[in-house]
């Protein structure tokens, strides 16, 4: 009797990816403006007293929430990117393809730039009084509005491509409004906005984490439930239907998951490009499969590690400079990922 190939993710790959992730996590706690040795980091994490008392503060107040944020965002955007690439059968699809990040940036732009825009500013100035949280709130509102609109449309539209075009059009529209706001704003405010648009994992406080983490985990959970429908969708909508899949419902949940993940990470960290497009391709190349039961967990683990490492580089260890996250990802990520993909079998979508 012929033995058939094994499906799903092999145990040793999971272990390997977990080890890499743990290493990246410890590394990101170790490195920064001050270097804290790994054994000290572990001692602090396990509740012990470090050699320098201030180190515990650095770890708990700054580096730990930042590392957890990076881990979650990396996993979230990779999972969302994978889902969108399969749903739209397009290798260039990213988590923001349906306009979620455009909505978020419109929300943020209104808060930061709107006060300078004149008439309708009273309400927004009031919103600004919330300070730090108001950015996340505005971005969440913006992302949520787009998400809601996309979900409503997705239940009515039969054709997936129509949805894609609507998302793209909405993206252009919001970008136009954001550009208009930038055009009429004071330079200092534009600087604040571009700082947000550069992306950062450092802005999430423990308080915000109480919203950020559960929403991300919920999105990832839905993602796990949708692995089987995504596999059926590999064959196209018609075949998926013939396999008994309710395509419209599956699409709804997949979009909900991806948009929650993209929306919440944009709301708290700004738009983080690149991870969502690139990591799923790396996972496909390295695992040499299109099976989402392998790709989704692998993408999440790889994306989390990638985000952590990118953040370490962005902190420019040993210096006081912090580089924009999106710049670091593209500058350091593109060569790595090109190498991985070009050295594997030819690039195939999903």
């Amino acid at each position: 009797m012929l033995s058939f190939p094994k499906l799903g993710l092999r145990a040793w790959i999971v272990v390997l990816l977990l080890v890499i992730l743990a290493a990246a996590f410890i590394l990101s706690l170790t490195l920064g403006s001050v270097r804290i040795p790994p054994e000290q980091v572990l001692r602090i994490l396990s509740g012990g007293e470090p050699d320098k008392a201030s180190w515990a503060d650095v770890i708990f107040k700054f580096r730990l929430p930042k590392a957890i944020t990076a881990l979650l965002v990396g996993a979230a955007l990779s999972a969302a990117g994978l889902q969108m690439q399969t749903l739209f059968r397009n290798p260039l699809a990213d988590p923001f393809i349906l306009g979620v990040s455009s909505g978020a940036s419109l929300g943020v732009a209104l808060v930061i730039l709107g006060t300078g825009a004149g008439s309708a500013s009273a309400f927004i100035a009031g919103l600004n009084a919330f300070g730090d949280l108001s950015l996340a709130l505005a971005a969440s509102l913006g992302a949520g509005t787009v998400l809601g609109a996309v979900l409503i449309v997705s239940r009515r539209v039969q054709n997936t491509v129509t949805l894609l075009i609507l998302g793209l059009m909405f993206g252009y529209l919001t970008n136009a409004v954001v550009s208009l706001l930038i055009y009429f704003s004071q330079p200092e405010r534009v600087q604040v906005f571009s700082l947000w648009a550069a992306g950062s994992f450092g802005g999430v406080t423990w308080n915000q984490m109480r919203v950020f983490a559960p929403v991300t985990i919920a999105g990832l959970f839905i993602g796990f439930v949708m692995m089987k429908p995504l596999n059926a969708l590999l064959l196209g909508d018609d075949y998926a239907r013939s396999l008994g899949l309710n395509v419209r419902r599956a699409r709804f949940w997949i979009i909900l998951s991806a948009s929650l993940l993209a929306g919440v990470s944009t709301a708290f960290c700004g738009p983080i490009w690149f991870i969502g497009v690139a990591v799923p391709h790396v996972a496909r190349s390295l695992l040499n499969t299109a099976d989402h039961r392998a790709l989704l967990p692998a993408s999440m683990l790889m994306g989390a590690s990638f985000a952590l490492v990118a953040d370490v580089i962005a902190q420019a260890p040993g210096s006081q400079y912090v580089l924009p996250l999106n710049v670091v990802m593209s500058l350091f990520g593109v060569p790595v990922i090109l190498w991985v993909i070009l050295h594997q079998r030819q690039l195939r979508f999903s």
Partner: peptide, 21 residues
Amino acid sequence: AGNLSAYALVTLGRHPYTDWL
């Protein structure tokens, strides 16, 4: 269907019978 083995493709036919995973 992208990068699926023939076997993985045939197993998709079990979609109506298998559990949520």
